[in-house]
Every structure is written in structure tokens, then in C-alpha cells.
């Protein structure tokens, strides 16, 4: 398929996942903070900004860190290319450039989702019914993903979509842990619970670990679970599977090698050792590894596109040395 189309599908997947993750994170933070002190609250919101890697950019705007300011910034601020609205718009724009590759149902569900968001008064939603808004974003993203799964042929396009989607998810789960790992004391119980909620993993976690809120269990669950679809390992396995299908004749491409190493590193690690060692550094390396895979995917499959720096040549008679 066209390199540019592959890239657009990859980003459609990424942006959709980004919108969903951001909505989930905001929802959980907002509702987890109803009974906390202002200091805790500020910390929680700056954790949110850190998790989406927008802390520094937000600080440049010299705004106070409050529920309202951060939510607005992350939901609909037009200056924030990472806001939910921007992410959905970009998912749609990317999908629009590859419309002929998508099923009509997929395009329609994404398009109407975007049109609905555009048509809402998001400021009022944030003020009066944030939970409904986040629920809507989550449900719609899942709808789009579901429609995609039900209607798209398992061809190259699908693989790139899945690849973008799962790399984004793995990166996000990784960051969620990075932000929380320092708060290892048992008193941080409800932050850990929120972290699980942010990943929609609380129920699944409880079925495995019952009532334990041992940080090691949470880390193991979000990082290393082989059954929970939002764990870093699970997402990377899904991404690796997609990459494997993309490689011609079982060829071991550079992104596949990198991803394979990253995944197997996690696959065979032990959470106790991780907790005793430098978990922060470990998470940082995993996150960096995911970024490198994405960069290699771009080089391997997308970089084939021409850059737009055409120049025209004009040569005059009588120019230069003689006449």
C-alpha cells in the first residue's frame, strides 16, 4: 500500500488511543479528587500533565494548575495539539486522507464522533457533566475501534492501524506507571487505585490480585500482565504481531528486531527485581524503546515520502562567465 496511506492509518490509530487515554486519565483524576486537599489536588493534576508529557508546555502558558485549567487544556484547547478534540480531529483528518482504505462504517463512525465533539459546548460539559463527556469520548473511541475490528480486512492497512494504536497505548501505560512509581507507600492506596482505573483495569486487577494494593502487584499488572489488554507487555505483543505480518516473507526488519528485544526483556523480567532496582530508569528505558520502534517503523515504511522542498532552476543566457 502507499507509504503515505500506511502512515495515515498508523496515526489514526495513535490519535484515537491518545484521545481515549486522555479522557480516561482526566475522568479518574477528576473524580478521585473530590475529597482531597488543594495541595494533593495540584500534585494530582501536575501528575496528569506529566503523564501526557505536556507539563513543560503547559507551564510555559503560566497558568495555575487547577482542575479547570488542566482539563480545559487537555480537552479542547486549540493551542494544544494533544488535546482530546485535537486528537480526534487529527484522527479524522488522517482517516480522511485514506478514506478509500477504510470501510464506510468505520469512516462514518469516526466522522460522526468528530462532528459530535465539534458540535458540543465542551466548556459547559466540563463544568456540568465532565463524567458524561469523558464517558462519551471513551465509548466513541471504543466504538470506532470495534467497528474497525469488525469491518476492516486484515490487510496491511489494518496492521498499521493496530500498530499505531498499540504503540500509543503501551507508551501511555508506561507513563502512567512512571508518574506513580515514586508513591510507593501503602498510604498512596487510592492513587494506585486511580492508576488502575485510568487504565480501566481495576476489575481485572481485582480478579487476579483480590484486594491487595501492593504496589508491586499493580506494577506487575500494568507492566507485565499477559492477559490484560492495556498492559505494556500485552500492547507490545499486539504491536509485534502486527509488525510481523507486515514483514515480507518473515523477514526480520529493524523495527521488528527492536520491538522483539523490548518485548522479550519485559516478558522475562521479574517484578520483585524491578521493584528493588531502579524502576524509574527501567520505565524510562521501556518508553524510550517504544519511541525508537515508532521511529524505525517510520524509516522502514513511511520515510519513502518526498519532502516538499522543490526548487526550480533558471538559467539565463549571458549569465555567469561570458555573455
Amino acid at each position: 500500500m502507499l507509504a503515505r496511506d500506511a502512515e495515515s492509518l498508523f496515526w489514526t490509530g495513535r490519535y484515537l488511543e491518545r484521545a481515549e487515554d486522555t479522557a480516561r486519565l482526566l475522568d479518574v483524576t477528576y473524580h478521585g479528587l473530590l475529597e482531597t486537599t488543594p495541595a494533593e489536588e495540584a500534585q494530582a493534576w501536575s501528575d496528569v500533565l506529566a503523564a501526557v508529557r505536556l507539563g513543560r508546555v503547559f507551564a510555559e502558558g503560566r497558568r495555575p494548575i487547577t482542575a479547570a485549567s488542566v482539563s480545559e487544556y487537555l480537552v479542547f484547547d486549540p493551542k494544544n495539539a494533544g488535546s482530546i478534540l485535537s486528537a480526534v480531529e487529527q484522527a479524522r483528518e488522517n482517516a480522511r486522507t485514506v478514506r478509500e482504505q477504510l470501510s464506510t462504517e468505520l469512516w462514518e463512525s469516526l466522522n460522526s464522533f468528530c462532528l459530535e465533539l465539534r458540535g458540543r459546548n465542551l466548556r459547559a460539559d466540563l463544568e456540568f457533566q465532565p463524567h458524561e463527556l469523558y464517558g462519551l469520548v471513551r465509548r466513541q473511541c471504543q466504538t470506532v475501534a470495534g467497528v474497525a475490528a469488525e469491518t476492516m480486512a486484515r490487510d496491511e492497512g489494518w496492521r498499521f492501524f493496530v500498530l499505531g494504536w498499540n504503540l500509543e497505548r503501551a507508551e501511555m501505560s508506561c507513563r502512567l506507571l512512571s508518574v506513580r512509581y515514586r508513591q510507593l507507600s501503602p498510604s498512596a492506596f487510592h492513587q494506585w487505585m486511580n492508576t488502575l482505573r485510568s487504565a480501566s483495569g481495576l476489575e481485572a486487577y481485582r480478579r487476579t490480585y483480590q484486594a491487595s494494593m501492593d504496589p508491586a502487584d499493580v506494577v506487575e499488572f500494568l507492566l507485565l500482565s499477559r492477559t490484560f489488554p492495556r498492559s505494556v507487555l500485552f500492547s507490545l505483543r499486539t504491536a509485534e504481531n502486527a509488525l510481523g505480518h507486515l514483514a515480507l516473507d518473515g523477514q526480520l526488519t529493524r523495527p521488528l528486531r527492536q520491538l522483539g528485544r523490548l518485548r522479550s526483556g519485559l516478558e522475562f523480567s521479574d517484578v520483585r527485581e524491578l521493584m528493588q532496582g531502579d524502576l524509574g530508569e527501567e520505565l524510562r528505558q521501556v518508553e524510550e524503546g517504544i519511541r525508537q520502534v515508532a521511529a524505525s517503523v517510520a524509516t522502514q515504511y513511511f520515510s519513502n515520502s518526498r519532502e516538499f522542498d522543490l526548487h526550480s532552476l533558471h538559467l539565463l543566457p549571458g549569465e555567469g562567465g561570458g555573455r
Binding site: 518526498r306 522542498d309 522543490l310 526550480s312 543566457p317
Partner: peptide, 10 residues
Amino acid sequence: QPLRGIFCGS
């Protein structure tokens, strides 16, 4: 025009 063309990259 004796030589006309485009180039890309510099």
C-alpha cells in the same frame, strides 16, 4: 529556455 528543471533536497 536552455535548461529548466527542478531539484529537491537542497
